[in-house]
Write a protein that binds this DNA or RNA. Sequence first.
DNA 1: ATGCCTTTTAGGAAAAGA
Length: 257
Amino acid sequence: MRIATYNVNGVNGRLPVLLRWLAETAPDVVCLQELKAPDEKFPEAAIRDAGYGAIWHGQKSWNGVAILAKGCDPVETRRGLPGDPDDSHSRYIEAAVGGVLVGGLYLPNGNPRPGPKFDYKLRWFDRLIDHAATLIGMDAPVVIAGDYNVMPTDRDVYKPERWRDDALFAPEVKAAYFRMLGQGWTDALRTLHPDETIYTFWDYFRNAYARNAGLRIDHLLLNAPAAKTLRAAEVDSYVRGWEKTSDHAPVWVELGT
DNA sequence: ATGCCTTTTAGGAAAAGA
């Protein structure tokens, strides 16, 4: 089973790119982030015509997450993280697909730092870690995938010194990421490619993609039953080179299940 | 050092993204 995550940066503006990528690579499960569309504007028909069932949690203008499943409907198990009933952002959705529990997330950016947006990022990350603690020990494979908005190490940034004060590279945020890994999650991409330069995001400007001035911020975290069957993990970097493309590229894992 | 692009909403300009 191939499970992917893709921050599309506007699901309607990006629909041709998304449909082309689905047709060319046929992933079994896809977590989407930054739909930038309310629930009623989600392109359900086009995605169904492409062969995918879907659940989504939209929001006007910003945020928004979805889970697609090839040839079936994801069975929703949760939308939104527990721990803050006043959180109005659509940033987490979770479903069972083919015996795998899949969480799709869009972690807050957190800039500028310091400030209320950064505080929100840290609180949101804490809530994610609390929820992840309830999933890590499941007997079934669990994959928590999405845009974590954190580069875990210097190796995940084209120029680390330029990002020292940024909310995506702040010590508190990296610490939260490693606290989550400490529960027993496997960072699939880094585990299979320990020494490679791998990015999942490139700015639209400064010719960032052509210069490979990127960041690795989209991650797939696997619990032990999922990690045991991990066969491959890759970035579909070439999609970043398409016309009218997102600033993120799709990232995926292949599990033996 | 910098949102230098891009999307969204809205019908011009501004917010947000990373």
